[in-house]
């Protein structure tokens, strides 16, 4: 394998991680991503055992997950597999589909709460124009956040993922950190 050393979206050797009171934000540099789009007359596949979800939804499988990104289009996630050619693996599982490498197109930040869903909802309220109460576990959507376009995934009651363009990693990290930090200042 190559001896070239990769860097994270934030430009460092190791992924960033920071705690802000009840919330911890961690850069998920190992997440593999690939886009899967149905070609005409292709049957909807169940790649890697995944039941591809409908609009607004995220479906988790074994070490992989998928969220809807358009008619006949999904983004497939694979934990800790960014170093491999995940797109090739996926293409083999989805004949008759267009598959495109996306791991390096995005930066993913995983946000975890140690106090249940309330801190996640409070953060969502300050970041995006999404009805936080209606964005429960299994929800995924694309929306604007501080002049950037991001995917939001409610992975669990106490976990939220924010996926933005890789080149905007610094701006997104800043926006998330500033907002979480202000919430920490407000909390008693």
């Amino acid at each position: 394998m190559t001896d070239l050393v990769p860097i994270t979206a934030l430009g460092a050797r190791a992924p960033a991680r920071h705690a802000f009171g009840a919330l911890t934000i961690a850069e998920n540099a190992g997440l593999a991503l690939a886009s899967l789009a149905l070609r005409r007359d292709a049957a909807q596949p169940a790649p890697l055992g995944l039941a591809l979800p409908g609009p607004g939804a995220w479906q988790a499988g074994q070490g992989v997950a998928a969220f809807w990104t358009g008619p006949g289009q999904w983004m497939i996630e694979a934990e800790e597999r960014a170093a491999e050619d995940f797109a090739a693996t996926l293409a083999a599982e989805a004949p008759g589909c267009s598959v495109t490498e996306q791991s390096d197109g995005w930066t993913a930040f995983e946000i975890a709460s140690d106090r249940g869903g309330a801190p996640i909802r409070a953060l969502l309220e300050k970041l995006v124009n999404i009805d936080a109460a209606a964005f429960g576990p299994g929800s995924a959507t694309r929306t604007g956040l501080h002049h950037m376009s991001v995917f939001l995934i409610r992975r669990a009651e106490d976990r939220l993922a924010v996926i933005g363009m890789r080149s905007l990693a610094g701006a997104l990290w800043h926006a998330l950190g500033e907002t979480a930090g202000r919430l920490k200042g407000e909390r008693t």
Binding site: A37, R40, D104, R166
Partner: peptide, 13 residues
């Protein structure tokens, strides 16, 4: 037309 598109500007250096 049977065509699929996606941006890869950021994905490739």
């Amino acid at each position: 037309l049977d065509v699929q598109l996606i941006s890869t500007t950021d994905a490739w250096a």
